[in-house]
Design a protein around this nucleic acid. Structure first.
Lengths: 195, 195
DNA sequence: CTACTATTAGTACCTAGTCATAAGATCGGA
DNA sequence: TCCGATCTTATGACTAGGTACTAATAGTAG
């Protein structure tokens, strides 16, 4: 009896986690117990009712959307920034960034951080990378914190080009450098810029 | 009267769009009409009830989470490959790859595809990008399919370096080129390679 | 056998609705 | 001014998916 209850409650937790849209009735059916038992279980486990669960998921969604509108565009977290002058961003290397075999960060994440920062630096609606030359100075490992420092080195307003130089560090060791030639649309309207 | 109704319904739509969590009662209060009027309005406008609205938002959330998960070791899908010789991968540009404002693919996704392919081409346990020079030839837009073709142009076994050239196309238009100087650890053990 | 836990059952009540019917309010035109 | 059409409000019956509470029953360990 004891065992049965515990087991059922564990399974219940998992089931609801996997599918928050399941009703007590369906759960009762699934576990071959009465609805009341399911409700007692939820009570003991502090699992809220269906509608509250759904609402919770929906609230998350809205919050995430709001949160990810400005954030999702930039890889890394920008911690300092003077438009068209310089900027600094940090990126903490997690397991999602590394090769599983050796825990070394995949190159494109470092690139993405630097490139994002370069784009963000440009004070324009539309900034695109035209050219980039980069060096990976030393591999970056899991759990290291990469600090990317970008400096605008050259604005050619006539051509709509801006050069951004990025150097990324772990501690005071340089791990990555890149020179990004950015294209800015703005005043230059000979391109199909409008959107 | 006519005007009042139309106006109220327009406002109602907008109000619910902005805050799907609002009840008919709150809406009735807000518009100074009875609950029944609000319900007739929702009926005419085919706006579902609160709980259905919330559910809809929640379902979106779950779907989005599932969609953004499988983004791991290789960016793009490798469809052809001769180790140390050449390889081809494709990447379909989805909304997760583009700037929301203009539907142009973010540079680092193209880079990631090319870089992934270059890494995969190297027949070695550990391949890292040492240097890369890339050009974005033309912007890639939402829903375009990018085909990246990589060719190994130079293997310097003594130095542990391999040069991979990648050209990416949409149709037969070139959109991106990159030259990747790859570092391979293997036989060369004078570096602190082991991990 | 008794005490205790687990389970089931039943009732009243809740929210946020649907659906259908009816009655009152308002307005525009003949 | 009265008529008919459109709006608006009210009312009642019903629903899903619950909460909260009380009570009865089943099974088991000491």
């Amino acid at each position: 009896m004891r065992r049965q209850k515990k087991e059922r409650q564990q399974l219940l937790k998992k089931t609801i986690r996997d599918n928050p849209f399941i009703t007590d009735e369906e759960l009762a059916e699934k576990f071959q117990v009465s609805i009341q038992t399911i409700r007692l279980d939820r009570l003991e486990l502090s699992i809220p009712e269906l509608r509250e669960r759904i609402k919770h998921v929906a609230v998350q969604q809205l919050e995430e959307n709001v949160k990810s509108l400005p954030l999702d565009e930039v890889v890394g977290e920008i911690i300092d920034m003077e438009l068209d002058v310089q900027g600094i961003s940090i990126l903490d290397i997690g397991i999602e960034h590394v090769f599983k075999r050796n825990n070394i960060a995949r190159g494109h994440h470092l690139f993405a951080q630097a490139n994002s920062l370069a784009v963000a630096l440009i004070d324009e609606d539309l900034a695109l990378t035209a050219k980039a030359t980069i060096q990976y100075v030393r591999p970056v490992k899991l759990e290291e914190r990469v600090v990317a420092k970008a400096r605008v080195s050259n604005i050619e307003n006539d051509k709509g080009r801006t050069v951004v130089e990025v150097r990324s560090f772990v501690g005071n060791e340089i791990v990555f450098t890149g020179k990004f030639e950015m294209y800015r649309s703005s005043k230059n309207s000979e391109d199909g810029s409008s959107r």
